[in-house]
Design a protein around this nucleic acid. Structure first.
Length: 370
DNA sequence: TCTGGGGTCCTAGGACCC
DNA sequence: TCTGGGGTCCTAGGACCC
């Protein structure tokens, strides 16, 4: 049995919106919404706390967000910029422990089990991290801590914004019990609806639920969910994770019927995917074409090749072949995309290559997945 | 109100082999 | 005349996360 661990979950507050407010002082104190234009069918990628007061949330259609909050300033995302700031933040985390697992540009797990004593406890360590992130980036980070990932993650959410909440050893189950099931990572709209229909609304009720019933509802995941609800979670913090796919997709501002328009965008996406494959010194064996019809029905079609590739023309050719099989005259599409999967490093496909820092999702440079 | 773009993981069925 | 079991690879769709 592993001993008691100390896991932190660090999560930047309203990250993209906060970076914009920091970089553009005229935006401070105002509702800021980062995301695509409403005319281009954009959605909200991040909303400042001023905007959240109007009910604006991530993933909301931008048209609706701006109706909820007409005085909001919409800002197009600058992912390169967020990436730069992310690297600074991850470097701060890494200065405390090498055991960090980035989950996105603005979020990471840290295993500080070995550092806790030296820092005078988990709370002191978290306080130090918050101060250092603020010093380096002038941004706020919320930190949650506890015996495992589930507890740490929910604790960081519970403390937001600018939060710091450490759940004491032994108090996990009592901490989780009153919270809604939706607070658990892994329970989305569908699972929530199923559980609610079964009379299960809180994490505490999930912890007490019948194992057989959960297994019928969710398969093997059902029992895992109940364990999480009981505050039990042995998943390690994994600093290095292999990238499994690279994708590029476009939602058209207006539905597309014309085949040559589809083809043109598809070639552009293939080019983009190929470029990113080469950047990471990787090759793909599977090419996946993704199409979303105007009625939102989404299909995928894939082709697996004997040899991995990073060539634009090969990727485009496979994707176009799949497109020809699927598209019927008169079909209307709102999205087209390409995914390259079944990835291998160059050395695995017969070429000499040194270890490439871009290969892993988490790297020493703090390159979170983009 | 009309739904992004980047990902991960899981399930289930079919082909094929021994 | 009826019909194994295990393993691997592949495909399509869906739930979920940030």
């Amino acid at each position: 049995m592993a001993g008691q661990r100390t896991i932190l979950h660090a999560d930047m507050d309203a990250f993209y919106a906060s970076v914009e407010q920091r970089d553009r002082p005229e935006l401070r104190g105002r509702p800021v919404v980062v995301g695509g234009a409403p005319e281009a069918r954009g959605v909200v990628a991040a909303a400042s706390y001023e905007a959240r007061a109007f009910g604006v949330r991530s993933a909301l259609p931008m048209s609706r967000a701006l109706r909820l909050c007409p005085e909001a300033v919409r800002v197009s995302p600058r992912f390169d910029r967020y990436g730069e700031v992310s690297r600074q933040v991850m470097a701060v985390f890494r200065s405390m422990t090498p055991l960090i697992e980035p989950l996105s540009l603005d979020e990471a797990f840290l295993d500080i089990t070995m550092q806790t004593t030296a820092h005078g406890g988990a709370e002191a360590a978290a306080r130090r991290l918050k101060a250092e992130v603020r010093r380096v980036t002038a941004l706020n980070v919320s930190i949650g801590g506890g015996a495992n990932k589930t507890v740490a993650k929910i604790a960081s959410d519970a403390g937001k914004p600018d939060g710091l909440l450490i759940v004491a050893a032994g108090a996990e189950r009592a901490f989780l019990a009153p919270l809604p099931i939706r607070a658990l990572s892994g329970i989305g709209p569908k699972a929530e609806a199923l559980l609610t229909a079964a009379g299960i609304r809180t994490i505490g009720e999930l912890a007490e639920a019948d194992a057989g019933q959960l297994e019928r509802m969710f398969g093997s995941r059902g029992v895992q969910l109940r364990e999480m609800a009981r505050g039990i979670d042995q998943r390690p913090v994994e600093p290095v994770q292999e990238r499994k796919s690279i994708s590029a997709e476009t939602t058209f501002a207006h539905d597309v019927v014309d085949g040559s328009d589809l083809r043109q965008e598809l070639r552009r996406l293939a080019d983009e995917a190929a470029r990113r494959l080469r950047e990471r010194r990787m090759r793909a064996r599977t090419i996946v074409l993704k199409l979303r019809y105007s009625n939102f029905r989404t299909i995928t079609r894939r082709a697996t090749r004997a040899q991995p590739t990073d060539e634009r023309d090969v990727i485009a050719g496979e994707a176009e072949r799949l497109l020809d099989v699927v598209v019927e005259p008169g079909d209307r599409f709102r999205l087209i995309g390409v995914t390259c999967g079944h990835l291998s490093g160059l050395e695995a496909s017969g070429q000499l290559s040194l270890w490439a820092p871009g290969d892993a999702r988490a790297t020493p440079a703090g390159d979170a997945k983009l």
